[in-house]
Nucleic acid binder design. Structure first.
Length: 560
RNA sequence: GCGCCCGUAGCUCAGUUGGAUAGAGCAACGGACUUCUAAUCCGUAGGUCGCAGGUUCGAAUCCUGCCGGGCGUGCCA
């Protein structure tokens, strides 16, 4: 049984189509022709849902669209608890008018399923691994990482809610050149602290957090050990220490942000398993490598990427790209059938490379789906705050969380499609008014909770069992019921498109409907029958707001 | 130069994967509080969907070429 309204309509359509056009929709029909598009109608004059099958069929059948529409129409059964009416409109659309009994049935199902309304158990779903954030452990998370964290975490929650099998992973780049630079940065700051004259190179990590780490070393056993060793001997110890400390800080920031990874995957462990060498051997076997100028190159074939790329430097050290090929191979070998990577959009040029790497190793490149997340501009007092990671002048995620809170931050990161630039207005995120969507949505939840509180205070009966739903006869009430019924459809489509921002837009629209209804209509009326039905309705709104917010990882407060 | 992404109301953005008369919020203007939270609501106004072609019953959406913005094009990550 589907929980999707569109699928219910599709089922009926299929049966009708099988009857009237068996050559296409019968058992012998082409499977690819069997998908039928059903869409919500934006204009009430066109009913509630519409399909364009008659239009898409017309060519194949050599019929006029309106004629085939008429044939299909004749086979669609009308029912008092579902399709009340359907008619042909425009060039050949079939519009469906859904009966109000159907919406009321859906409303009741929200009360039956509660926190599970919109949730689906899907069988035979592939195992998905979502990798996100994966910021180098060389400094604290900044605001841009926050957006990736919010998008990845909400996507994981959304997919899980819709029955996908999902795991999440953070790839820790704890190997390679940047770890050496990190260690050197720390050692130099430590020496500086001990009163030595040092020269701090421009390409080292400038941030104050390095100085703070150095400060923390003073007087410790590790600090003393570092002092007694030569610079080169001390370096790996310093790198390790800095990496661990910074990673702990990152994990703490993520915890505050409500993001929990199933796994932190260490790049070092790839070296420990010899995974990079094995991947390179495999590529050699497949004749994908070439020695040139002392380095080992990946041979790109034509349309994959514009030019060959180095995998092993002349120095003998593998590049990040080599590790990444080994990492993606490792992910697939661990049994994940579908990989989702969430990257900053400045890495977009990297997508064809990694896919070419997978392809060369014999894996289907379309198993990897890369979501690119655009940059975030922080706005204060209407002006952009300048940020530059190099100079160490950047706003950390933690600072933003301390200022606006986790709820506002998470919600804001999802108020735009992830592939467009996001202006994060700090003043707006703290404002308590209509233009701040977080408060607007949370306020719906608080208002409804308040209605039930007041009912208790005033000794008004707020029992909602066995309501008489015929009391819900206002057009606003039907509009709310339609929106609530659409929640599972919206989630399914958002999950399919991997667009968690649709959840935020849905919640704002539902909130619009509610606030307007609340303003014009009293829920706690004298009329027992009306009151009970309206309480039943608003409780369902509260439940859906709650379920939607929980997918976003945002709290649904009872009081504000 | 080449590649990827973007261009929708004054501003910030949606637009159900090609559907019917392109939608919200903010800002502007005008209204609504003896009320279940006014942290709200109602109304007015605002458009050559960057430009020009093409594909078809039908284009903001797909194709081509321009214009403008961002990013990439490291033996950096």
């Amino acid at each position: 049984m589907t929980d999707l309204v569109k699928d219910s309509i599709r089922e009926i359509l299929y049966k009708s189509l099988e009857k009237v056009f068996p050559s296409i929709y019968g058992v012998d029909g082409e499977p690819s022709e069997k998908s039928v598009e059903v869409s919500r109608s934006k204009d009430a004059r066109f009913g509630d849902y519409a399909t364009n099958v008659a239009l898409t069929l017309s060519k194949k059948l050599g019929l006029k669209p309106r004629d085939s529409a008429r044939t299909i129409l004749g086979a669609i059964p009308l029912a008092p608890d579902f399709i009340e009416n359907c008619e042909i409109a425009g060039p050949g659309f079939i519009n469906f008018k859904i009966s109000s009994a159907f919406w009321k049935q859906k409303l009741t199902s929200i009360h039956d399923r509660k926190n599970l309304y919109g949730h689906a158990n899907a069988a035979d779903q592939p195992l998905v691994l979502i990798e996100f954030v994966s910021a180098n452990p060389t400094g604290p998370l900044h605001v841009g990482h926050g957006r990736g964290a919010a998008v990845g975490d909400c996507l994981a929650r959304l997919l899980r809610f819709r029955g996908y099998k999902v795991e999440t992973e953070y790839y820790v780049n704890d190997a390679g050149n940047q770890m050496k630079i990190l260690g050197r940065s720390l050692l130099l700051r430590y020496q500086e602290l001990l009163g030595k004259n040092i020269e701090f190179p421009g390409d080292h990590y400038q941030g104050d957090y390095i100085k703070e780490l150095a400060q923390g070393l003073k007087g410790t056993a590790l600090g003393n050990e570092l002092e007694s060793l030569s610079f080169d001997e001390a370096l790996p110890l310093a790198s390790d220490f800095a990496c661990h400390r910074i990673l702990e800080g990152i994990q703490e920031d993520l915890r505050v942000f409500g993001v929990n990874f199933d796994r932190y995957f260490s790049e070092k462990s790839l070296y420990a398993q010899d995974a990079i060498k094995k991947a390179l051997d495999e590529l050699t076997k497949r004749d994908k490598l070439e020695n040139r100028e002392g380095a080992i190159w990946f041979k790109m074939s034509g349309d994959e990427d514009e030019k060959d790329r180095v995998l092993v430097r002349a120095s003998g050290e593998p590049t990040y790209f080599a590790a990444d090929i080994a990492y993606h191979k490792n992910k697939l070998d661990r049994g994940y059938e579908s990989l989702v990577d969430i990257w900053g959009s400045d890495h977009h040029g990297y997508v064809p490379r990694v896919k070419a790497g997978m392809d060369a190793l014999g894996y289907a490149p379309d198993k990897l789906r890369v979501m690119l997340v655009q940059f975030v501009n922080l706005i204060r007092d209407g002006k952009k705050i300048s940020m530059s990671t190099r100079s160490g002048e950047f706003v950390t995620l933690r600072e933003v969380l301390d200022e606006v809170g986790t709820d506002a931050a998470r919600f804001f990161f999802l108020t735009k499609r992830s592939d467009s630039h996001l202006d994060f207005d700090l003043d707006l995120a703290k404002r308590q008014s209509r233009d701040n969507p977080v408060y607007y949505v949370q306020y719906v939840h608080a208002r409804i909770a308040s209605i039930f509180r007041i009912a208790v205070e005033r000794n008004v009966d707020s029992d909602i069992s066995d309501p008489d739903l015929s009391a819900l006869d206002l057009p606003e009430e039907e509009a709310i019921m339609k929106s609530l019924a659409d929640f599972p459809d919206m989630l399914a489509e958002a999950a399919d498109a991997m667009e968690p921002h649709r959840v935020t837009f849905y919640l704002v629209e539902l909130s619009d409907l509610f606030h307007s209804y609340y303003h014009d209509n009293k829920v706690l009326t004298q009329d027992d029958r009306v009151r009970k039905a309206r309480l039943f309705l608003v409780e369902a709104v509260r439940q859906v707001i709650h379920n939607g917010l929980s997918i976003l990882g945002v709290t649904a407060p009872d009081r504000m």
